[in-house]
Amino acid sequence: MNIRQIELEVMRYDPEKDEAPWFQQYSVPCQEDWAILDALNYVKDELDTTLAYRWSCHMMVCGSCGMMINGEPSLTCKTFVRDLPDKVRVEPLENFPIERDLVVVLDDVMQKLHQVQPYIVRKDAPPQEDKEFTQSRGALMKFKQLTMCINCMCCYAACPQYGLDKNFIGPAALALAHRYNLDSRDQGKSDRLDILADHDGVWECSFVGACSEVCPKHVDPAAAIQQMKIDGAMEFWKQKLGMPGDKS
């Protein structure tokens, strides 16, 4: 297999030694079918065991290895050497504090995922324990794409609104809330409305659309948020006009 020499420029930061992040160069002989993650693993195994980064599945599903590759939020296991120039810059995800090297602090987004109540809320009793809900394929289709989010947080790294205002709930968490709102089994939409329609919720989004462009799983959080805005506006007018609101 052909080998191509890639100059990796990796952001390093050791909070116990460094005042601020800096870049370290590694020259990596890459096989032609490698992803950037393979190049990082080569650095870790052969060149510098002190480099810190997160990874696990190497198959685009665990969401650990989101990083900035040449300025673009990406999964390193899904970004291939063949599609990149000879010089590749790898940085930790934008808009997050850097814990160490390529590892960012995720506390804020973990709390936001929690905040939107991402679970089935029932007002009526569910079917008996051995009976499932009936859900047509059409009803599943409504929210299926939104279930594909792997929480890699690339969308937060791409979102300037989140960068400017950390109170914004942000793309992945809002999309997750919408996923449950659209699920025919859920009755928690009105519970979530207070959080989502608040000023840190959907209205903080100015539809830059970057989140959807970088999403490695094509979840399209930007679309979800616009749908929620339309939903929210309809709900507002229904209430103003004294019409019955959404039953759930």
């Binding site: 909070p15 601020a20 300025g71 808009n95 504090p97 814990e99 602090v105 300037p160 400017l164 970057a210």
Partner: peptide
């Protein structure tokens, strides 16, 4: 622990990439 926060300019952040400029 001493997490490092990268500064984001309130006035020129949109110069970062083409996507933001179009926006």
């Amino acid at each position: 622990r001493r997490p490092y926060i990268r500064p984001m300019s309130q006035t020129t952040w949109y110069m970062r990439n083409g996507r933001y400029k179009v926006y």
